[in-house]
């Protein structure tokens, strides 16, 4: 147990949690329409903690989809976590007990992945757990409140809070882009192609999660071929 990692974990968790609360609140409005109770929303959010996946879940419940459909929608919406889990496996202390892999795996979200990757060395489980537990609680509470209170929070506040997550993503990807030109180019290509995908007929029908997977594999493959990373860069 490391106090510094714990403090930084709670700090990052609270910051992420603020954004989560806002997003989950609006997700709660979808769950409310699907007929979920606040407790059910809290449970679904605590267990899934994935915006696209939960959106798929609530929409499925609303349309009385089959359980198999829910499984497939969840798989597609959350498949990017497969890649993040692969990436995190390379940052895991090989000496760490096995149950840490289960617990960290359970916690993975875009944001926890982002802040963990931005930290040097092996993944700190203390940092990860403190960050994830606080933020997932705020996420679940947001969903609970969204179902319970409906449209009480002013739209301007929801709108402003909902970009905090993206602000953090930017803060994570810009520093390495300054140091490494290939990362900067990959980031620029990601912005451009991602935008292009939302304009292109047919492709724009794909869900955000699917688009993320396809573009990530495409761009990271090209970058890895054009500029393979030397061992010292990975440290």
């Amino acid at each position: 147990m490391n106090i510094k990692n714990l403090k930084e974990g709670l700090h990052d968790g609270f910051l992420i949690g603020l954004g989560y609360f806002a997003v989950a609140f609006s997700l709660g409005l979808v769950a409310r329409k699907a007929g979920l109770s606040p407790i059910q929303g809290f449970l679904a959010s605590f267990l899934n903690h994935a915006s696209a996946g939960e959106n798929g879940l609530y929409t499925s419940i609303a349309t009385l989809a089959t359980y198999a459909e829910v499984a497939i929608i969840t798989l597609i919406a959350n498949a990017r976590y497969l890649l993040m889990s692969c990436s995190l496996s390379q940052r895991f202390d090989p000496q760490a007990p096995f149950f840490h892999r289960l617990l960290v795996g359970f916690g993975i979200t875009d944001e926890f992945f982002g802040v963990s990757i931005a930290r040097p060395g092996y993944l700190s489980t203390t940092h990860f757990y403190s960050c994830a537990l606080l933020a997932i609680f705020m996420w679940s509470a947001g969903d609970f409140m969204g179902i319970w209170l409906g449209n009480l929070l002013p739209l301007s506040v929801v709108s402003a809070l909902s970009v905090s997550l993206y602000g953090m993503f930017i803060a994570i990807i810009i520093p390495p882009s300054k140091k490494d030109k290939v990362v900067a180019l990959a980031v620029a290509a990601s912005f451009a192609l991602s935008y292009l995908c939302t304009l292109t007929p047919c492709i724009k029908e794909l869900s955000g999660g699917t688009r993320t997977i396809i573009l990530t594999i495409l761009i990271a493959t090209v970058a890895a071929i054009v500029k393979p990373v030397k061992e010292e860069d990975l440290k």
Binding site: Q90, V187, P228
Partner: peptide, 28 residues
């Protein structure tokens, strides 16, 4: 080396793809 390089780029590309243009759709 290829897989290592691929996984090195994955986080930055993923976060960038998820940020834009989604940030413009999150606001009113």
């Amino acid at each position: 080396p290829f897989v290592r390089s691929f996984l090195y780029y994955v986080p930055y590309v993923t976060l960038a793809v998820m940020t834009f243009p989604a940030i413009m759709e999150a606001t009113q």
